[in-house]
Amino acid sequence: MTLLITVFAAIAATLVWYFNTRRRELKLGALALMFWGASLMWLVDAVFEYAELGAEFFSPAAADMLNDSYLGLCVVALGLTIWLGMLLFSDPKGVIRNALTNRKK
């Protein structure tokens, strides 16, 4: 489930990157790459797990699935938070810079 949720997040981020004209300013590429990188790594993890468990891999216990889904959602939230941090740090609109300089004045 973690892999599946991350793949969906990667697809959504890629679509937003593709259709948004302000992709560079919003650092949408970094967001998409982050989710794709994690998806590829979890894919490898899944392949190794499949090699170990066989068909049992596709029928996980309900409690495991719930925990994995919860982890997947937390991973997406963390990814979005990292991306937001990067965006605010680069501050393309100068909002934070202006707020800080106004406060100093």
């Binding site: 982050m34 989710f35 794709w36 994690a38």
Partner: peptide, 10 residues
């Protein structure tokens, strides 16, 4: 981007 992002989430 893929390596850092993926490693961080993992």
């Amino acid at each position: 981007g893929m390596l850092w992002g993926g490693s961080a989430l993992l």
